[in-house]
């Protein structure tokens, strides 16, 4: 078991990258990238919940939890992300 070079650290790098992508979309660059404001909002929320799923599964170790708890986590992410996107698009 390596202390630093392991899957959790790879996940952390993905989280940093996802934060950078959200920052690019969320600052003035969205229109330059060809996104409308609505698309930008949905993309930012989807990226946020991808990050949340990674934290739940890999940092909070739901990946190794009994399946019922793991799937509760998966369902929570999908439900919450769907509700927030729906409210954004109202």
């Amino acid at each position: 078991m390596n202390l630093v070079f392991n899957k959790a650290s790879s996940v952390w790098l993905v989280l940093i990258l996802a934060t950078a992508i959200s920052w690019v979309i969320g600052t003035d660059s969205a229109s330059q990238l060809g996104f409308g404001p609505e698309t930008a909002r949905v993309l930012i929320l989807i990226i946020a919940f991808i990050k949340i799923r990674l934290v739940l599964m890999h940092f909070m170790e739901l990946n190794n939890a009994p399946r019922s708890l793991k799937w509760t986590g998966e369902a929570w992410v999908v439900l919450m992300c769907s509700v927030l996107i729906a409210v954004t698009l109202l």
Binding site: S22, R41, L45, A48, V55
Partner: peptide, 22 residues
């Protein structure tokens, strides 16, 4: 540990909601 990760997780949503959405 899980509580601290939850603190991080909540900020992961609060950050785009308050700073990035337009």
């Amino acid at each position: 540990g899980c509580y601290w990760h939850m603190v991080d997780l909540l900020w992961i949503v609060i950050f785009p909601l308050l700073y990035l959405l337009r």
